[in-house]
Structure formats: C-alpha cells, structure tokens
Nucleic acid binder design. Structure first.
Length: 468
DNA sequence: CTATGGCACGGATT
DNA sequence: AATCCGTGCCATAG
C-alpha cells in the first residue's frame, strides 16, 4: 500500500505522545539536506521502514514518475482559478530540474567551442616569457573538469629550471584570468581569488572573506548559527554574507562558464544547495498563478514494510514485541515527516497569500511581518513557525535562492529603497540626506541605521562614490 | 567641521 | 532565556 498524501489534510494537530512531539519538532527544524540524511539514517536503522518504488498520483491514483500528482491532475489544478497552486514534491525532481537547466546552458555556451586551457593561455600568453609559457602550459593540461588542479610548485620549478617565484606568478595569472579561479586547488581557494578580484571593482561586505577562509565547511552546510557564534557576529549578518557569496562568487568557475566574458558568475547559485521550496509562475508568466512547490525527500514513497508486517504473525512472542516496536517507530516517523511537510505547506500558503506582491513585483513590496503574527493566524505556537522557517531556503521565481527568513526581513524593503535612491542619485547623497528623503516617504529611521543598511548592501560611503 | 564607523545599551523578536 | 536590531554617543577619517 502506498501512503496517500492529500495536500489538504489538516495537520494531525497536537501530537499525543511526548515522543511524537519531540520528533516532529526536530524534524521541523531541519533543512532539506539534513532531513534527507535523517531519513536515510532511519531507513538503515529500521527494517520496518522502506521506500516504495511505485509512486502514485495523490488525486487519481495513477502511476507517476515523480512528484505527488499526475500531469493531468496538475494541469487541471493549475488551470483552475486559484491564484496559488501548491503541492508537495520530492527531491529527485529538483535534481533533474537543475540538471536539465544546466544541460541547456552547456549547449548554449559550447557554440563557440574552445578548450579551457586554450582560452586561458590566450589571455595570459602575451604577458609571459617563453619558459613561463612552458610552465603555464604544463599546469593548464593538468586541470580537471572543474578547472582545478593541485600543483607541486617545487617540482615544477625544478623541472623547468625556473625560480619558485616564477611558478607562483604564473599560477596567480592563471587564477586571475577568466574564468576567475581556475587553476586553484579547490572551490574554497577559487572563491577567495574571485573575492580578491571582485574587490577591485566593488565593495565587499565585511566578514565575507573570513567566512570563506575559516568557515568554509560550515558555510557549505549552511550552519550559519555556528559561523555567527565563531566570528561573534549575528546570524543574519552571516546569511547576508552567504547570499552575497552565492550571488557574486562561483564555486566552480570553470565548470560552465568558459566562453562567457560578461556574466561569469550569475547562473550558478543553484550549486550551493537545493532549495526546500520553489516559487514560480505558471508558464513563467508573472500574471499567472503562483506555483508553490515544497520539496520533501521521498515524500510519497516512504511506507511501512508490508512483508515485515506480515512476518509478525509468524514469529514467536519475543521477537513479535520487538517488531511491533519497529513498526510503531516507523509509522511515527512517517507521520512526523508528513506533518512537517504539512506545516511548511500551510505556512507557505499563508506567506504567499500575504506577500503576493513581493513575489510578483519584487523586494520593494515586502510587507514587514513577524513570525508571531503568522503563528497567531495559523493558531500554532510561535516556536513552530520559528522552526518551520529556520534553515529552509526558497527559490523565488527569478531562480535565485534565499533563506526563507527573507519573508520576515523587516528592513529589506527600506534597503531596496535606499539602493534605488542611490542608483538614481545625481550627486552622492550622504546618509543624512537619505534619511530625510525617507522621512518624506513616511519612513523614519535614524541616520545611523541608514549607514548600517548601506553597509549591508555593500554600498560605499558618499565620499567614496564621488571618486568615479 | 561634517560624515562615517565602532561599541554598547535596551526593547523587541524568536 | 537567548538573540537580534535600531539607536545614541563618541572617536576618527575626510
């Protein structure tokens, strides 16, 4: 039997046992990645739990390849009048979704075919002496698929009879050629080089460098709290930094981008992780319905092992009790997982309804709301919302991934207003002047705060903007 | 002298 | 109870 998922099942509210309570809380707290690990762990530990390979549409019950409903039912729902269409989907779909996108991207850029080594050598060759060229060529042939390489500087220097400093110079030039960061040892180094180069044209929010240099692992796992604690800065500041990183830096510079000069970085932020929630427009048309997709690994396929269930009857009393316990644990786990999905779904439906303009028209229209308000409306405890929001990410229709907490960011609206103001300014506006302009628009914040927001957006001070 | 950034305090939020 | 965020005050850079 498959587990039936109906999108609308009300949460089986108020868990009965403390075990149930504890488990659903921890599960709700987890982001998609952690949840997946947790499921794997449970699958391994509990024989009563298994994945059903047959997947069925939650509406009509026909067999489907992925998601929770068949195409017909999906289409029907999407074409119906409702402005928001929500459904729970599974992990696999994300993967293929992103892979598909990237597939297209590859095909597009491969039009002017040129190997990465050639491309880089062309850029730096004119600047190199003959022995240096040899070194460069040697390094470039060693690049792996991602454009990374581990170089033994000493060995190379002695092989070509050049000083170590020469080899290092060549390496540095390779790293700084487009795509910036190839020839590095790994993503971490590549991103640091990119940051270095970026710094020449653009201010870098404080802390970004430290985070990459010293907390790279934690960053990958999105353990923002930890990083914040370690560096003694706020979690939101870390998240800001992370967002800056995913918008401006590319962990795999050479993987998709060679051939493209102008936008070396944009397209890639999907790499840093998959979102837990995807918002998009039906047919990509901002006028049409908003599609709300919640990702839940193995959602519809997590079931009780049927043979295990049967086997109970044929076993003796001692093992029977153990098996029963297994089954109980398994069904509890499934329930909790589903409850998690449901909570997130409800939350998102509410958020989408409330913040529709923000989703359709952008940052300027984000209404300031608090988790507490939502909790009240949904009639759940505040901490439930907190958990549901924490460590989740959402992909907006523009394909960019943000922390779900962005929906509760009270300053985003004002920050974008400031950004706009500055981009349209004739002469550089000082913080004080910005503050007064905002005042006229009914927003009263202190001058000091304007400065903070400016800093968050990586905009330099009025003086520094004058220099250009 | 003015604009900006650092530090720390207290109320609000989680 | 812990954390975040806006702000005021002060030092310092421009």
């Amino acid at each position: 039997m498959y587990q039936k998922i109906t999108t609308r099942t009300s949460i089986e509210t108020k868990p009965k046992t403390t075990a149930h309570l504890a488990q659903s809380m921890t599960l709700l707290n987890m982001g998609g990645g952690e949840l997946e690990e947790e499921i794997q762990k449970n699958l391994a530990a509990n024989p009563a739990l298994e994945i059903d390979e047959v997947r069925r549409c939650a509406v009509c019950g026909s067999e489907i390849a992925h998601g929770t409903r068949c195409n017909t039912c999906m289409q029907r729902q999407i074409r119906s009048e409702s402005p928001v269409v929500s459904f729970i989907s599974t992990r696999e779909r994300t993967t293929s979704f992103i892979d598909g996108d990237q597939q297209d991207y590859f095909e597009e850029i491969n039009v002017d075919r040129q190997t990465l080594p050639e491309y880089i050598l062309k850029q730096i060759g004119w600047n190199l002496s003959d022995p240096e060229k040899m070194v460069a060529a040697n390094i470039l042939t060693q690049l792996d698929d991602d454009g990374f390489v581990k170089i033994d500087v000493l060995e190379l220097a002695s092989y070509y009879h050049v000083p170590i400093s020469t080899v290092e110079k060549v390496i540095s030039q390779i790293q700084r050629a487009d795509p910036i960061g190839s020839g590095c040892e790994d993503s971490q180094e590549a991103m640091l080089v990119q940051l270095d180069e970026l710094e020449k044209n653009k201010p870098i929010p404080s802390g970004v460098k430290k985070i990459i240099a010293d907390h790279y692992d934690a960053l990958l796992r999105k353990h923002f709290k930890e990083i914040g604690r370690a560096l003694n800065i706020s979690q939101t500041k870390v998240e800001m930094a992370a967002q800056f990183i995913s918008e401006n830096l590319n962990p795999f510079p050479a993987r998709a981008n060679w051939g493209d000069f102008r936008n070396p970085i944009e397209e890639e932020n999907t790499r840093l992780g998959q979102p837990d929630i995807i918002l998009s427009f039906f047919e990509d048309d901002p006028q049409k319905a908003i599609l709300l997709e919640i990702f839940q690994p193995y959602n519809s396929n997590l079931v009780l092992n049927n043979t295990y269930k049967m086997a109970i009857k044929e076993s003796d009393k001692v093992t029977r009790d153990e098996m029963k316990a297994d089954l109980n644990r398994a069904s509890l786990f499934i329930k909790c997982i589903q409850q998690r999905a449901n909570t997130i779904l409800q939350l998102m439906e509410m958020l989408v309804g409330l913040q529709e303009r923000f989703i359709r028209e952008g940052d300027l229209y984000l209404k300031p709301i608090t988790r507490a308000q939502i909790a009240k409306q949904m009639d759940v405890h505040e901490s439930t919302i907190s958990r549901a929001v924490s460590s989740k990410t959402v992909q907006m229709p523009d394909k960019k991934i943000y922390p779900l907490a962005i929906f509760f960011d009270r300053s985003l609206r004002i920050r974008t207003m400031i950004k706009e103001m500055i981009s349209k300014e004739v002469k550089p506006l000082s913080d004080m002047e910005i503050m007064k302009k905002l005042e006229k628009m009914d927003i009263s914040i202190a001058r000091r705060t304007v400065a903070k927001y400016r800093d968050m957006e990586g905009i330099p001070s009025a003086h520094q903007r004058k220099e250009k």
